[in-house]
Amino acid sequence: MRVANRSPRAVIGTGLKYVVGFLACVWMLFPIYWTLTTAFKTREAILGSTPVFVPTLITFEHFRTIFSGSVDIQANILNSVLVAVAAVGIGILIGVPAAYALSRMDVPRKGDIGFWILSTRMAPPLAILIPLVGFYFAAGIGQGLIGLTVTHLLITVPLIIWIVKGFIDDLPDSLEESAMVDGCNRLQALRTVVFPLVAPGVAAAAFIAFIFSWNNYVLALYLTTGESATLPIAVSNSVGTYSIQWGQLGAAVTVTILPPVVLSLLIRNYLVAGMTMGAVKG
């Protein structure tokens, strides 16, 4: 009935909207769908000249390969979790206070320091890797999770500082001031007033930092060894010298993207809230 009240133009408009949305979703989803289904296809189906859009013959062969065959993906998962969680955790611990100081306190040359922090992320890793690897070997953290985690702080800390800083910028000064008038010192005001309010922003920042740490391949390649390798290395290892094992690749990718996807669903509301408030002023 409501449709009847609309002008034909509006109906076309609505139709168009669905079409655009549908196409955009297909564009975003199809490559992922294709990879996920590849993980369950037989080799014949993957390499056949007629693509199989909906696999009817499902195989778990490729998952068996990566979980109990020649690949040790359990260790990769564990390493990835350890590194990303530690890098994000430490990132929050040191990044949030820094963001607060940059936003609220009288730090000399604030702008320059802020930009320098952002710019640490601009160096192409390949340019600094050879010196970095030498440096880490000299420091005795050559090829282990500690070295990798420390390096991942380069990914997480600037991101967290920038997103959380923008978020704190957005809070009215009066909140802390009134808390301080009430007799809190600054630390207390932070704990009781500022932190609870920035929590969604921190969650959003942590999530984005997590994704970038989780997905990092270049650093892991040079800074880990067999036992300390992370998931993107497992993905890369499906490229054999003579053939790419597409099924194994699909399975490894499935395992790799599952945690970020689940996490994004879990914190989806925080994410939007955090992004909304956090990034307004950068």
Partner: peptide
Amino acid sequence: RRFLTTVGASAALGLAGCIADSGGGGGSGG
């Protein structure tokens, strides 16, 4: 150990798949 359990589990386990695939025998179309 992993190798033994895998083989024990089933002969048709698709070790076939992984090893042959990663190896010379890979890339089978039919």
